[in-house]
């Protein structure tokens, strides 16, 4: 057995070497083949032309896509800048209306009219003065820091046999100071011309209001923004939420379709 195994050992070595070499050769062969397959220079001219044509088509499609995307981009940019313009326009419009309706405090030049406690002042005098201020171009008016709006009313109440002038049901304390924003000269002239309201108050009622021009006045916002229970804006222009009494998030103004508990106190 030992003798027989000897030659077998001898032939196994060359066979192993040969097989190893063959394996190496095979792998090298395979790699060369791969490289050659990937190399364009190994392709036939017609095949190259086909590849070129495909690429050409692909590039045309990509370029078309880019043109379309650029167009979309331009449209969107135009829209968003138009949107910005629209938003800032609405915002300035909103600010104007909020200022005019007394929903925000307002400052500016104007006049103050001070009426002292010894004057026989009636609430109708205040109605007249405020009306005259609007007629003279006032942009905002406040009476004792009570902002005057479309809903503001003047009245009086009797307490302990004394008559008190009220604004929106609140007692006015003396001195009554009326502040009006607008051109100070125009406002003053509107009140003080001969035969004008101040003239009449001086001569007829012995009330001598003191008028001063001011470079800067600050008028507060309304204390309670109006809430409507009966009046409904016509549909189309109405806010989407006109179904139930609505107040804005900040407890602001609103409209309601159902009657509220009561109107303003009297």
């Amino acid at each position: 057995m030992a003798r027989k195994s000897q030659p077998r050992h001898r032939w196994q070595i060359p066979v192993t070497i040969v097989l190893l070499a063959t394996g190496l050769l095979l792998s090298v062969q395979f790699r060369t083949q791969q490289v050659l397959l990937n190399d364009l220079s190994m392709l036939k001219t017609e095949e190259l032309v086909t590849i070129w044509k495909n690429l050409n088509e692909k590039r045309a499609k990509l370029e078309g896509e880019i043109v379309e995307l650029r167009r979309q981009q331009r449209v969107l940019e135009d829209k968003s800048s138009a949107g910005m313009v629209a938003i800032s326009e609405i915002q300035s419009n909103l600010n104007r209306l909020k200022t005019s309706t007394g929903l925000v405090p307002v400052k500016g030049p104007g006049i103050t009219i001070t009426i002292t406690g010894d004057s026989p002042l009636l609430y109708l005098d205040l109605v007249d003065i405020v009306n005259e201020l609007w007629a003279s171009g006032a942009e905002a008016v406040a009476v004792n820091d009570h902002r005057v709006t479309a809903h503001t009313y003047f009245g009086d109440i009797e307490e302990n046999e004394t008559l008190y002038v009220t604004v929106d049901g609140e007692r006015l304390l003396y001195p009554v100071v009326i502040k009006a924003i607008g051109d100070p000269n125009t406002l003053e002239k509107g009140l003080t011309f001969p035969g004008g309201i101040i003239d009449n108050m001086n001569t007829l009622y012995a009330i001598f209001p003191d008028i001063r021009q001011k470079q800067e006045l600050l008028l507060p916002a309304v204390k309670t923004p109006p809430v409507w229970f009966y009046a409904a804006p016509k549909s189309g222009t109405a806010p989407a939420t006109a179904q139930a009494p609505v107040t804005s998030p900040a407890g602001g103004p609103g409209f309601g379709a159902t009657p509220g508990p009561a109107g303003p106190g009297q």
Binding site: L76, G83, L97, K98, A231, P239, G254
Partner: peptide, 29 residues
Amino acid sequence: QVSGQDEMTNLQEELNLIKGLAGMVEVTG
């Protein structure tokens, strides 16, 4: 654009409300 549109809608709603209070809209009641 989507967030801009949201802002726009909010502003427009507020504007409609204020317009109503400013007497710039016909009212019924």
